[in-house]
């Protein structure tokens, strides 16, 4: 791989071209610009670009045509569409034709930077390893915790749900978990979501999650933040008039998302879980200091500073111990965990 990626920016407004060039050059990319489709394709054929950013609406050869030609010439090049107000449906069309993402106009430098770094991350990821198999169990509890690889957030563009794309088996996956059996009994009354202290922040409320499990919207559910926001207070469970164990369903979904790592968005909970598991497998008990430090170092180093005073105060009150306590019969516990792991989990 080259040490610098190169990007071609195509827009009929010079100011957009210029500002893109400025933003992306600052981020360490090689950037060239073109003010129309014809010029763009000429430059593209000559140069060696990794990414093309192109405005959808242009006089003459438009964005869609540029996309088609680029994909024809070099399918591995990623194309990002720039869209204006009212062209979202065309953007969707473009994504179907192979565009990797789109930036709605107007955008801030941060927005552009974020989308491009996601594209870059995905590109390097594709080169580095094959995508994990769906449903494969990836528990390797005694090795050093692997880096949790985050994938770029999916852009869910609203569209017709095509039956063909739904996952019929999703409902069975959930129903085969203890507590998940009754998900089919939901009458969509919303008591769960109304009771949940956190549902207001979820991508989908627990009631919607129930409906989506039944409909087979596996990807949407497993990549949603809902399952990681659940604080496990069980209020939904005790209030559900159909006695559906909603909290347990959330656990089942967390497990499924964990196993299929492509669903782990930038939520921090999976990371915390991962470190906690490592901690318990190593010592048999949780070593609070180690867990906290490891987690914050990776998830949010700045928080360590922020919480250091609190940590010090706890330490002074002997509420933090520096050394972990290991249980005596740790080998027994590990044998058991290995066996449970070998059994392939619950599903």
């Amino acid at each position: 791989m080259k040490d610098k990626m190169s990007i071609l920016v195509v827009d009929d407004e010079p100011i957009v071209c210029d500002s893109c060039k400025k933003i992306l050059t600052e981020k360490g990319f090689m950037v060239e610009t073109a003010l129309n489709g014809e010029e763009a394709l000429k430059k593209f054929k000559k140069g060696d670009f990794d990414i093309v950013i192109v405005d959808l609406k242009m006089p003459g050869v438009d964005g869609m045509e540029v996309l088609r030609s680029v994909k024809k010439i070099k399918p591995e090049v990623d194309v990002v569409m720039i869209t204006g107000y009212g062209t979202i449906p065309s953007a969707v069309e473009a994504m179907k034709l192979g565009a990797v993402d789109y930036v709605p106009k107007p955008f801030t430098p941060e927005e552009l930077g974020q989308i491009i770094s996601q594209v870059v991350e995905k590109r390097s990821k594709l080169v580095a390893e094959k995508a994990p198999k769906k449903g494969a169990i990836l528990l390797d509890v005694f090795k050093k915790p692997p880096k949790v690889v985050y994938h770029p957030e999916r852009v869910w563009v609203k569209d017709i749900k095509i039956e063909e794309t739904l996952d019929e088996n999703f409902l069975n996956e959930v129903r085969s978990t203890p507590g998940g059996e009754r998900v089919i009994d939901c009458i969509q009354c919303g008591t769960c979501s109304g009771s949940c202290p956190l549902s207001y922040r979820m991508d989908y409320t627990p009631r919607e999650i129930n409906a989506m499990v039944r409909a087979g919207l596996r990807d949407e559910v497993l990549s949603s933040n809902s399952i990681w926001i659940c604080s496990s207070c069980y209020l939904c469970t005790v209030r559900c008039p159909r006695q559906i164990k909603i909290t347990d369903i959330m656990y089942a979904l967390k497990n499924l998302a964990m196993k299929d790592k492509r669903f782990l968005k930038k939520a921090k909970s999976p990371l915390l879980s991962r470190y906690f598991v490592d901690n318990v497998n190593r010592y048999g008990r949780n070593h609070e200091l180690e867990l906290t430090l490891k987690f914050f170092l990776r998830a949010n180093p700045r928080a360590i500073l922020k919480h250091s005073l609190m940590g010090l105060r706890l330490f002074l009150r002997k509420r933090f111990s520096v050394f972990p306590k290991r249980i005596k019969n740790i080998n027994q516990l590990r044998t058991m965990v290995r066996k449970a792991e070998a059994l392939g989990g619950l599903r």
């Binding site: 969509q188 009354c189 919303g190 008591t191 769960c192 979501s193 109304g194 009771s195 949940c196 549902s199 207001y200 409320t205 009631r207 919607e208």
Partner: peptide, 11 residues
């Protein structure tokens, strides 16, 4: 009264 307004998908 706390509830989920399921028609608008909000708490």
């Amino acid at each position: 009264v706390r509830c989920e307004d399921t028609a608008i998908g909000a708490i």
